[in-house]
């Protein structure tokens, strides 16, 4: 499969699956029916678990046994979490963390 076709199909898969997820309760549960407790439970807990998974996934290429040992990721992550706990401004936290990270990998840990 060539790359353009793959990218197109990947986007379509994501779009269709996302729409089906959004559609699901409207198709399956009527006015009075209550969804199974199991589905409600998974719905409540899956979001933080999935986001934590994505955080780890984002740093999957880090090698802690070789220079720079994941130190730039650690520092920049601390900046994001501390700044966000303090100010609660998503854009500020993301910009500051990314700027710190870029500075570290371009100038300091080279």
């Amino acid at each position: 499969m060539n790359r353009t076709l793959f990218v197109f199909l990947a986007i379509m898969v994501m779009a269709v699956v996302t729409y089906l997820i959004r559609l699901f309760p409207f198709l399956v549960f009527g006015r009075s029916e209550k969804p199974p407790e199991m589905v409600l439970y998974i719905g409540r807990v899956i979001s933080p678990a999935a986001i934590a998974m994505l955080v780890i996934y984002c740093v999957k290429q880090v090698n802690v046994t070789a220079f720079p040992f994941g130190v730039p990721e650690l520092i920049a992550s601390a900046v994001v979490v501390l700044l966000h706990s303090w100010k609660g401004n998503p854009l500020l936290s993301i910009l500051a963390g990314t700027a710190v990270y870029m500075l570290l990998v371009q100038k300091l840990f080279v």
Binding site: I51, V55, I94, T98, M102
Partner: peptide, 17 residues
């Protein structure tokens, strides 16, 4: 170089919230 950390930062922000 390093701009892809914005993705990590976004998920960290959501997770912190």
């Amino acid at each position: 170089r390093g701009i892809d950390f914005s993705m990590t930062a976004l998920f960290l922000v959501i997770l912190t919230d």
